[in-house]
């Protein structure tokens, strides 16, 4: 196992950025370490200085504002899965984060790590993609805000360079049933725990008078990054929120996605079929949560 030389536990974001800046690329942010430490173990990681951001108070907070959420970058999956606010106003994220790994991994692993590790099936990131999350990235040059969909370079490759910058917080609009906005998450895996998803789907949608106002659909792992079928989302606007429309949409999404065949995750044909099933279920579940529809 390759090892780091020094381990820092800064108490503020400024201090963390100062350390990254000081070590000029030889340092790296560590959150829970549930991905990073195994990468050291496999000799795939060689940073000399680790900067642990999990002791920075402002990065550990979940804040529900008037109409949006602000999630600190070091918030764990367990925190999100156990938050009543998240359950009430971002249910898709609560449902997704409770599926990650195991209780131990959820206690350690952070939501920003789920983004930076850039796995196309990362449950938390799939939910955040459907939530259209805006990611705040801080470096010595200041802060930038980037939509989550623009943070991917490829499988396991993020545009966030954690040797020089850190995801300080993540922001998205709250999902409020009072405004006819709802969300849902669906997942297929070979076991209920410690299993990567064969397919996972997150949706957020708004209805008006029995019609789709808008919907955002995020699907993994069917592309190099969390996948959004933007054209089909556009087509959905104005369609009735009935079973027939959902069947048509789910079928179209299934035709569009191109999952690979995988010995672990199932054949391409099977997974396309499952995309159809899960997109359908997620849309129906989200609509049912609005209460007025007979599902």
């Amino acid at each position: 196992m390759r090892r780091w030389e020094q381990y820092f536990t800064p108490q503020s974001l400024e201090e963390a950025i100062f350390l990254l800046d000081k070590y000029k690329g030889a340092g790296k942010i560590i959150g829970g370490g549930t991905d990073l430490i195994p990468q050291f173990r496999d000799n795939k990681e060689e940073s000399k200085y680790l900067v642990d951001v999990t002791q920075i108070p402002e990065m550990k907070e979940i804040s529900l504002l008037e109409d949006s959420f602000v999630i600190g970058g070091a918030v764990t999956h367990a925190q999100l899965a156990g938050s009543q606010d998240v359950y009430n106003y971002a249910q898709v994220l609560a449902e997704a984060t409770v599926c990650v790994g195991s209780p131990q991994i959820r206690n350690m692993g952070t939501i920003s790590g789920n983004i930076v590790n850039a796995q196309p099936a990362a449950d938390g990131a799939i939910a955040l993609t459907a939530l259209d999350a805006q990611v705040h990235i801080t470096s010595a040059d200041g802060e930038k805000v980037v939509p989550i969909t623009e943070l991917y370079r490829g499988v396991g490759k993020s545009k966030v360079d954690s040797t020089i910058e850190v995801i300080s917080k993540i922001e998205f609009k709250k999902i409020d049933k009072v405004q006819n906005v709802s969300s849902a998450f669906e997942r297929l895996a070979s076991r209920k725990a410690l299993a990567l998803p064969m397919v996972n789907v997150a949706v957020c949608l708004k209805t008006t008078g029995g019609q789709f106002d808008w919907a955002r659909i995020a699907i993994g792992p069917v592309a190099q990054m969390p996948f959004r079928p933007f054209l089909i989302e556009d087509e959905l606007r104005g369609m009735p929120t009935d079973e027939e429309s959902i069947r048509i949409i789910a079928e179209e999404v299934s035709q569009l996605v191109q999952p690979r065949s995988s010995k672990l995750r199932g054949s391409a044909d099977y997974r396309k079929e499952m995309v159809k099933v899960l997109v359908g279920r997620a849309l129906m579940k989200a609509i049912a949560r609005l209460g007025s529809e007979p599902y």
Binding site: Y7, I30, G33, T34, I37, P38, R41, L50, D52, P103, Q104, I105, N107, M108
Partner: peptide, 8 residues
């Protein structure tokens, strides 16, 4: 609970 084998 944490898995101590991957905990610095």
């Amino acid at each position: 609970t944490v898995t101590s084998c991957i905990t610095p």
